[in-house]
Design a protein around this nucleic acid. Structure first.
Length: 417
RNA sequence: GCGGGCGUAGCUCAGUUGGUCAGAGCGCCAGGUUGUGGCCCUGGAGGUCGUGGGUUCGAGACCCAUCGCUCGCCCCA
C-alpha cells in the first residue's frame, strides 16, 4: 500500500476502531470498575507536565528521561514533556490540589502515555495505561491491597492465569544504599567480563544488572551478594508483613530476588505480573512502593504505592472480543414511510435503543446493511403497516416475524435479548 | 540506539531459474428479488507490485538506499 505521508499515522501510533477499540475499552472499563470497588477514585491529569516533574522523579540517569521522552519548548519558552508514565503526574496533582491533607488518597487513572521507543508488539510510542496509586499509607497492608487490587483486575479480565506475580523488596533507602555499594564492589571485580550494556549500567543503574538477559552477566550475577542479606530489621519485617497479607488474601506470588525496577523512586516492595504470551514484552502490570517521590516533587514527606498496567498488552491477552452493540434497524418501504421512519427512529432512540436507519436504498440493501451491522431486529414500515398503525418486527437471528402495534413497540423491543 | 525477517488490490496471500505475472480467496459495489438480510449465481470497481536509484534488451522478482511493519537486544506497562 503506497500511502501519502498525510495519510499515514506517526510511527508507533495506532488508530483504535471496531474490535480493537472494544477490547481496549473493556480493559480500561474493567480497570475502572475494579478500582472503584477497592475505593480508588478516578483522576484525570494533563497528558503533559513541566519536564522537571519527570526529570526529578524518574532520576536523571534512567533511560526514559535520557532518551525516551517527548520534550519540547512551548511558545512561552517552557520545557514541556508528554508524560511517559503517570505516577509522577498523579503525585504532582496530589500536591497541587492539597489532597495530602486527607490521607490516604486512593486514585485510579487511565490515559495515553508517550515514549520514544522502537515500536514492537505490545510496545508503542503512544500507548495507554491504567493504574492505581495509594498515597499516604506507610503500612505494608497498603502494598498488599494495591497488589491484590491488581490481581483482581487481571482476574476480572480473565487473564490472571496467563500471568505470574513476581515479588521482591528493594528495602528502605538505607538498606538499598548499603546493598548497592556491596553489589558495585562485587561487580567491579568482574567488570572485564560484563556485557557492554552492563558496563554502562554499572555507573548508572547497577541494580539493573541483576535482571540482565546476557548469559555472561547472569553467571556473574548468580554469585553476587543478595539484596535480602543487606536488609535492615525494619525492611525485613516490612516485607514479611506484605507477604503475610498477600497469603491471607490468597494472592499467589513467586519471590524473585533479582526483580528490580527501572525507575529511581521505588523502595521496599517491587512486583510485576508477567506473561510469556507477549514475547519480549512480558510485563503486563507492575509497580511498587515509592516513599520518597512526593517529597522529591516538592510536597510533604508522604509515602506511596501503586502500579500501572499496559492497556494494549492486556488487550492482546484478552480471550475474546466484547460484542458490539446490536442496533434496531428500521426499513421503510415506500415514499411516505420514509419520512415517518425518521420520526419512529427518533422515538426509539429517545426510549434508549440504538437505531440504524439508512439514508437511502431498497429494502434488500437496507437489510444487508442491517445484517452487517449486527442488528438484532429489523422493523419494516410499509403501506399496510402504516394503515394499521403497526410495524412488522423481524428477529434477525431466527427470521421469525410478528406484527406489533406501534403503541406496544417499545415494550416489545425491551423483551428482545 | 544495535542485529535478523518482511513490504504485491481494503484484508489474507500466489506469483517457478528475471521474459502475457499483474493474479486468487475474502471484502466492496451492482444485478438476479421495484416489501425482507445471512446461502447461492452473474457482472463490476480496485494495485505506477512501499518509495527512490541502479544492473539488464527486459525486474514484482537481482543490487543499493530510504520509509514502514515485525522479531530479538535495550527499555519497560
Amino acid at each position: 500500500m503506497s500511502t501519502a505521508p498525510t495519510a499515514r499515522p506517526v510511527r508507533g501510533t495506532h488508530d483504535l476502531v471496531g474490535e480493537e477499540l472494544r477490547r481496549h475499552r473493556a480493559v480500561a472499563e474493567t480497570g475502572r470498575t475494579i478500582a472503584a470497588r477497592w475505593g480508588y477514585q478516578e483522576i484525570v491529569t494533563p497528558i503533559f507536565e513541566h519536564t522537571e516533574v519527570f526529570a526529578r522523579s524518574l532520576g536523571d540517569v534512567s533511560d526514559i528521561v535520557t532518551k525516551e521522552m517527548y520534550t519540547f519548548t512551548d511558545r512561552g519558552g517552557e520545557s514541556i514533556t508528554l508524560r511517559p508514565e503517570n505516577t509522577a503526574g498523579v503525585c504532582r496533582a496530589v500536591i497541587s490540589l492539597g489532597l495530602w491533607q486527607q490521607l490516604p488518597v486512593k486514585l485510579f487513572y487511565y490515559g495515553p502515555m508517550f515514549r520514544y521507543e522502537r515500536p514492537q508488539k505490545g510496545r508503542l510510542r503512544q500507548f495507554h495505561q491504567i493504574g492505581i496509586e495509594c498515597i499516604g499509607a506507610p503500612e505494608p497492608l497498603a502494598d498488599a491491597e494495591v497488589i491484590a487490587a491488581g490481581a483482581h483486575t487481571l482476574e476480572a479480565l480473565g487473564v490472571l492465569e496467563a500471568t505470574v506475580l513476581e515479588l521482591n523488596t528493594l528495602g528502605d533507602r538505607e538498606s538499598r544504599a548499603r546493598y548497592r555499594e556491596a553489589l558495585v564492589a562485587y561487580l567491579r571485580g568482574h567488570e572485564a567480563r560484563l556485557s557492554a550494556d552492563s558496563k554502562l549500567r554499572l555507573e548508572r543503574n547497577p541494580l539493573r544488572i541483576l535482571d540482565s538477559k546476557d548469559e555472561g552477566d547472569r553467571a556473574i550475577v548468580a554469585e553476587a551478594p543478595l539484596l535480602s542479606e543487606f536488609l535492615n530489621e525494619a525492611s525485613r519485617t516490612f516485607y514479611a508483613r506484605v507477604k503475610e497479607a498477600l497469603d491471607r488474601l490468597e494472592v499467589r506470588y513467586v519471590e524473585n530476588p533479582r526483580l528490580v525496577r527501572g525507575l529511581d523512586y521505588y523502595t521496599h516492595t517491587a512486583f510485576e505480573f508477567t506473561t510469556t504470551r507477549l514475547g519480549a514484552q512480558g510485563a503486563v502490570l507492575a509497580g511498587g512502593r515509592y516513599d520518597g517521590l512526593v517529597k522529591t516533587l516538592g510536597g510533604p514527606d508522604v509515602p506511596g504505592v501503586g502500579w500501572a498496567a499496559g492497556v494494549e498488552r492486556l488487550s492482546l491477552l484478552l480471550a475474546e472480543t466484547p460484542p458490539a452493540l446490536r442496533p434496531v434497524a428500521i426499513v421503510p418501504i415506500g415514499e411516505a414511510a420514509e419520512a415517518e421512519a425518521w420520526v419512529l427512529a427518533r422515538d426509539l432512540r429517545r426510549a434508549g435503543f440504538a437505531v440504524e436507519l439508512a439514508f437511502e436504498g431498497k429494502p434488500a440493501k437496507r437489510m444487508k446493511r442491517a445484517d452487517r451491522l449486527g442488528a438484532a431486529v429489523a422493523l419494516f414500515l410499509g403501506e399496510e403497516e402504516r394503515a394499521r398503525g403497526t410495524v412488522k418486527l423481524r428477529l434477525l437471528d431466527s427470521g421469525r416475524e410478528e406484527e406489533v402495534p406501534r403503541t406496544d413497540l417499545v415494550a416489545r423491543l425491551r423483551e428482545v435479548p
